[in-house]
Amino acid sequence: MTQSNWIKIVIAAFLGIALGLIYGWVIDPIQYTDITPNLLRQDYRADYVLMVAEAHQTDQDTETAARRLAIFGSDSPAQIVASTLVYANANNFTENEIIILQGLLTAMQTYQPQGASVP
């Protein structure tokens, strides 16, 4: 086989790889279902935390609020609310919503999981 033939084969192979990548990444990428909440876009996360804060404002159930926030993964509830508060301030949430989030943050900062205080 001549050298030019090899070059053509290599070019064809690279062309195939490129087509495969385009198809797999752009045309028909893997469709994810059943994702976990930590993959949610930030505004959805912020809205979820705001909902938790709105519920907490009424029921004052810190344990339930912490458990609801725990679906975002390993960050502590206080960290989750704090980062949401930063997002809220940066994105012009209403004053009332900021206050509600701050209330939840305070509750989460003082929150002790049940059993944690047991020696």
Partner: peptide, 29 residues
């Protein structure tokens, strides 16, 4: 060569390094 390359490309894009979502919406939770 083209088809072998195509297979390699698909294997890479679907298996080795698939598109990852970091900004997903709640509909696919």
């Amino acid at each position: 060569a083209l088809f072998i390359g195509l297979g390699l490309g698909l294997a890479y894009s679907w298996r080795v390094s698939p598109v990852t979502y970091v900004d997903a919406n709640p509909a696919i939770l």
